[in-house]
Design a protein around this nucleic acid. Sequence first.
DNA 1: ACCTGAACACCGTTCAAGT
DNA 2: ACCTGAACACCGTTCAAGT
Lengths: 211, 211
Amino acid sequence: MQAQKKKTIRYHHGDLQNALIAATLDLITEQGNEAFTIREVARRAGVSHTAPYRHFTDKAALLAVVARQGFDMLVEHLLTRIANFPDDPLMRFKYSGIAYIEFAVDHPAHYRVMFGPDKSGSRENAAVRKSADTAFQILLDCIEACQAGGLIRPGNSMEMALSAWSMVHGFSMLLIDRFVRETPTPGQDLADMMSLVTDSLYFGLKTEKTD
Amino acid sequence: MQAQKKKTIRYHHGDLQNALIAATLDLITEQGNEAFTIREVARRAGVSHTAPYRHFTDKAALLAVVARQGFDMLVEHLLTRIANFPDDPLMRFKYSGIAYIEFAVDHPAHYRVMFGPDKSGSRENAAVRKSADTAFQILLDCIEACQAGGLIRPGNSMEMALSAWSMVHGFSMLLIDRFVRETPTPGQDLADMMSLVTDSLYFGLKTEKTD
DNA sequence: ACCTGAACACCGTTCAAGT
DNA sequence: ACCTGAACACCGTTCAAGT
C-alpha cells in the first residue's frame, strides 16, 4: 500500500517494483490470467519468491496496480483518439467506442486484469475505481455533448453511457476470450467489425435528423 | 471424458458425479470462481480428494460439464421467455435480450464458468461449443424473423446478432462483477435497467416505420 | 468398479535471520 | 532498507494399494 507511493525503489538490480509489474504483464500475455503467480513473477525478475512482499502487500495489491495502470492507459488512448474530432461530438462518441475496443484488443493482459475476476478487492481499491470512473466520464461527456447539439435523443445520459459501455465491453471480452474468432463477413477486418458493432448502438441513440 | 456419458454412477453415498457438480456450483456461488478447487469440492461431497478423478479427467473437465449445463439452461430459458410472443418477432428479439441478462443474474456461478477465463480448453470442448451455438442461433433466428417482417433494417444478420450479444453479455458481466451496482435513476429496478439497455440497441436496429 | 493414502511438484504468505 | 531460506498450510495430479 504505502510502498507504491514511493517514486523509485532500488534493489540490487534496479527497480524491482516495475520489474515485477513488467513480468506480470509478460506472464499474463503469454499464458493467460491463471498463470500469474507471485513466485513465477519473482523468478522472472531474478529475486527470491518473498522479495515481492517488500513492494506489494499481496498478490491482489500487485494486480490492483496493474489494473490502475491499465485504466490510466485507457483514458489516455480514449482522449488521444477523440481529440481528432474537436468539432464533431457524434464522431467523438463513435470513436470513443472504437478506441475502447482497440485498447482491449491491443492490451488484453491489462484488460483482463482490469475486468477479470476480482481475486480480492481491486474492485474496491479507491485508486482503481477513480481511474475507471475517469474513463467512464469521457464516454458520458461525449454523449452529453451530442445531446446538447441535438445529435442524440434526449434522455438519461447515464443510461445511454451504460448501454454503450456494455456493448464495447461485451464485444471486447468476446474478442479477447476467443468467443468471436472470425469476422461475420469474409474480407472484413477488425476495424470494420468494430465500426459495425458500435454503429448498431450509435443508430439507436441518435436523432432522426442526423441521418 | 467417457465417464460423463454414463447416466448414473453410484458410489457409497449415491451419485458422486452430480454431487460434485452441485458442490462446484455452491462453492462458486458462495466464494467466486477462484475458490473452486477439486479438493474442496471433494471435501464437500464427503469423499477423498482423489475420488473426483474417477468421474472427471481433471479440473477443466468438471468445469466443461458445468459450462455445457449452463448453456443448456440458457437455451431453455430463452425459448421459454420468447414463447410468450409467438406472433411478434420484435418482442421475441427484445425479450431474448432481457431473458439473457436474467439468466446471467439468476445463475452467476454458471455464467462465470461459461464465460470466465478458460482455465484450459472448455472453449475448445465440442459439446460446450455446440450448446453455445444453439443459444446464439436463437438470437439469430429472432433477428431474421424481424427482417423477414420488415421490422428490422435489412443487412447482415450475423453482424446484428453479434452486436446484440456483445451488449447483453457486456451488461451481464458488468452486473455480475459488480462494476454496475446501482440503477442510473433512483427508483428503477433491475428489470427497468435491462429494458433500457436492450432498448438502446433495439432502437438502433429496427426500421423507422415501426416507431 | 470404485475409492483411498502417500507422494510429488507446485502455490501464497509469514517470519526470523542475514547484509 | 532490502533480500533470503525455512516453514506452514494449501493446491492438482499420479499411482500403487485396498475393498
